[in-house]
């Protein structure tokens, strides 16, 4: 019935649920990749299970699930792909990478404000001056609370040239 209706409105696309199609295809590829990664490991027998048994069969299960989603995407009407807003993720991810790269090499007092400055631009409503003040305040606040009061192992400032490390 629904098929007829659609035809009346014009040619209908072969893939009726793009969302399920892409998700399913991704799951199939990911599952295949996992199975390939496990290829060097013994599966063992049911009586003495090897390290690859559970992950391999779980991956196969996921692959089958992906295949079902792909098949369903041709049969059942579903949602279209949603738009990805890249601005937020890109800036936030960059800030995470900065923090990871700098926390050990130069310390929190440099890594934190820098990564916060970058992250802040992930919002379309960013106001640079306000952001700069916020990062300074937050850096001091976190340093006092996490290192000072709570005694967390955060390296604060590392400057080998001046042999500063605390």
């Amino acid at each position: 019935m629904s098929l007829l209706k659609r035809d009346a409105q014009g040619p209908h696309p072969a893939i009726r649920s793009p969302q399920n199609f892409v998700a399913g295809a991704f799951l199939i590829v990911a599952a295949a990749f996992v199975v390939w990664m496990l290829s060097g490991l013994p599966q063992g027998t049911l009586r003495t299970m090897g390290p690859a048994m559970v992950p391999r069969w779980t991956a196969i299960g996921i692959g089958i699930g992906g295949a079902v989603l792909v098949v369903l995407s041709f049969v059942k009407e579903g949602e279209a792909l949603e738009r990805w807003q890249l601005r937020g993720p890109i800036f936030v991810l960059a800030s995470l990478v900065i923090f990871a790269a700098m926390i050990r090499s130069v310390g929190f007092l440099v890594a934190a404000p820098l990564s916060m400055l970058v992250a802040g631009f992930g919002s379309r409503e960013v106001r640079p001056v306000e952001l700069a003040i916020f990062t300074v305040v937050m850096t001091v606040f976190c340093a006092v609370v996490f290192r000072g009061l709570l005694n967390q192992p955060l390296p604060m400032l590392i400057l080998p040239a001046l042999s500063i490390q605390f």
């Binding site: 916060m116 992250a119 802040g120 919002s123 106001r127 952001l131 916020f134 990062t135 976190c142 996490f146």
Partner: peptide, 15 residues
């Protein structure tokens, strides 16, 4: 405002 709050959330997660 959220434009600042999320920056705080990110740094808390990092720490």
């Amino acid at each position: 405002p959220y434009r600042l709050m999320f920056v705080g959330i990110v740094i808390f997660c990092c720490i």
